[in-house]
Computed example of a mutant assay.
Amino acid sequence: MGVQARTIAVIDDDLRVLESLVNLLASCGYRAEGYCSAEQFLDADALSRMSCIITDVEMRKMSGLGLLHHVKSTHSSVHVVIITGKPSENSEAFYLERGAVGFFQKPVDGDALVDLLKSVC
């Protein structure tokens, strides 16, 4: 499967981050779809066509952790990358133990993110 066939969802309620990541992924040849919330993503019934999801942790209703749990319980082959702009007691190891394939603090290092995606998606 070539990079062009891989679709990645970016889910973040910060529109600047959302647009930035969607544009970065598109410039690298990925199909990227942006969603402002986990609920919007799930309502779009897009999960089955994703190879990877990049999601913020802190969102209004369903958190990135809640979405990670949902994805891993229903579509275990879909990779999830967690991003956050807020320090928390939860570390990278916390999210990796729960099934995430990566964890990034905002501002996200675009090169490191793309390198991770090349290896997992």
Results as ranks from 00 to 15, higher is better:
M1D: 07
G2M: 11
V3W: 01
V3R: 14
Q4M: 04
R6D: 04
R6C: 15
I8H: 06
I8T: 03
I8E: 04
D13C: 02
D14C: 11
D14A: 14
D14G: 00
L15M: 09
L15G: 01
V17Y: 01
L18M: 08
L18V: 01
E19S: 14
S20D: 12
V22N: 01
N23P: 00
L24S: 03
A26N: 13
S27A: 15
C28K: 15
G29P: 08
G29L: 10
G29D: 07
R31P: 04
A32M: 06
A32H: 06
A32F: 06
Y35W: 10
S37G: 10
S37E: 08
S37D: 08
S37I: 05
E39V: 05
Q40K: 12
Q40R: 03
F41W: 10
L42P: 05
L42Q: 12
L42F: 09
A46W: 05
A46M: 12
L47S: 01
L47A: 13
R49V: 07
M50Y: 08
S51N: 11
C52T: 11
C52Y: 01
C52S: 12
I53Q: 06
I53E: 02
I53W: 00
I54E: 04
T55S: 14
V57W: 07
V57K: 07
V57A: 01
E58K: 14
M59A: 05
M59F: 09
R60Q: 12
R60S: 12
K61P: 05
K61G: 05
K61Q: 10
M62H: 03
M62G: 02
S63D: 12
S63P: 10
G64A: 10
G64N: 08
L65E: 15
G66E: 15
G66M: 12
G66F: 01
L67M: 13
L68W: 03
L68Q: 01
H69S: 15
V71Q: 03
V71F: 03
K72W: 03
S73N: 14
T74Q: 12
H75E: 13
S76E: 11
S76L: 03
S77Q: 14
V78Y: 10
H79T: 07
H79I: 04
I82Q: 00
I83P: 00
T84E: 00
T84I: 03
T84K: 00
G85L: 07
G85P: 07
K86W: 10
S88M: 13
E89F: 09
N90Q: 14
N90Y: 15
N90F: 15
S91H: 10
S91I: 05
E92Y: 08
A93C: 07
A93I: 12
F94R: 02
Y95V: 06
Y95R: 08
Y95W: 10
L96C: 08
E97S: 15
G99C: 07
V101K: 15
V101F: 06
V101L: 06
G102H: 05
G102S: 04
G102K: 00
G102D: 02
F103G: 09
Q105W: 11
Q105E: 11
K106S: 02
P107T: 09
V108T: 14
V108L: 10
V108D: 11
D111G: 07
A112I: 02
V114I: 14
V114A: 08
D115H: 09
D115A: 13
L116R: 11
L116S: 08
L116N: 05
L116G: 06
S119V: 07
S119E: 14
S119K: 14
C121W: 00
